[in-house]
Simulated assay, not measured.
Amino acid sequence: MPTSMPCPSIRIPIELLTQSSFSQFGTVIENPAHSTLPPSQRLPIPDAVSANQGSATKYLDVTHMSNLYNLAPSKKPAKAVMNMFVCAPRDLRPHEPSESMPSSWGDFDFDDEDADDSSNRQLFDIQILERHPFTTQTFIPLGLSQSDNHTQYLVIVAPTLPASASRLRTDRPPPYPTPAIKKSKSLRDIFARARPSPFTNEAAPPPSQFTKLHPSQRPKGPGLPDLKNLRAFVATGNQAVTYGAGTWHAPMAVIGDRPIDFVVVQFANAVGIEDCQEISLKADRNADEGVVVMVDSDASGKVLVKAGIGAVRAKL
């Protein structure tokens, strides 16, 4: 039974999954040529080389993979693993009017909009979040077309609270403490901190190994998920996604008519609490429903974007 934490009533609008909007949580993997964003909003194209006797273009380093198991309490080494998740469509409940939607986007009020008669609005209750504290996790959908409007998937993520804030919100220490990163103190480090070395141009010790990593790859600490800044993205069939190590996320949520097969790549050491940690979300006594994602769709079943880039009608 996972540890639980109380949560307020929050309704989250859906955003379009892009690398710029998702960068603090991980990486979006897609063919740059298929991007639906206008050129001004696209990130630089990854380095590419010609491959397969000129019949292919090879994009280099399209995602960031991290193995941080050297920080795990057990010190048990991990290995790269590849699994398949067959994810069935999630059950949604009918829309119930709400006065506002407190979220990272502020307070929205979508219920007074002139709703299109062909649109449909349903609710997805987030009951659990999980994280993999020492590894990235990449989900690669199989057999899902970019133009498939009847089946899509949601990527739901949350930042990590500082450990002190986690204690304040639950009156207990974080449930899954991770060890502090110990910095070695060599003679060189000690003297470098005291004053510039007369033998080199370095005035300080070399930076931590983690400063060289992409922000989504760095250790997140033991804190609980920051529910007030939870985000929900809708992915198309030509997008794969990598969760950064330690990123709180909901289990994969498929929306539509049929299951989606995902190939999942990560590291693991078979120590359960080090491979995966879970938090069950329980609505506060004064909360009506807890954390909810609003899923709006058109007549074809395509999920509509309500916030951020590509929003249909978002009131800021």
Rank of each mutant, 00 (worst) to 15 (best):
R167N: 01
R169W: 00
R169N: 02
D171P: 00
D171E: 03
D171K: 02
P175F: 06
Y176L: 01
P177E: 03
S184Q: 05
K185Y: 06
R188C: 04
R188P: 00
D189Y: 04
I190H: 01
A192W: 03
R193A: 03
A194M: 09
R195Q: 08
R195C: 03
P196F: 06
P196H: 04
S197A: 07
S197R: 02
P198R: 06
P198A: 04
F199C: 04
T200L: 05
N201C: 03
E202V: 08
A203W: 03
P207V: 10
Q209E: 14
Q209D: 11
F210H: 12
T211I: 13
K212F: 15
K212Q: 11
K212A: 15
K212D: 09
H214M: 13
H214C: 11
S216Y: 08
Q217I: 11
K220C: 08
K220H: 10
G221Y: 12
D226K: 13
K228E: 15
K228V: 08
V234W: 14
A235K: 13
A235T: 12
T236L: 15
T236K: 14
G237Q: 12
G237T: 13
G237F: 15
N238L: 11
V241D: 10
V241L: 10
T242H: 06
Y243S: 05
G244L: 11
G246A: 05
T247F: 04
H249R: 14
P251C: 07
A253F: 02
I255G: 05
P259F: 03
I260Y: 06
D261G: 04
D261T: 12
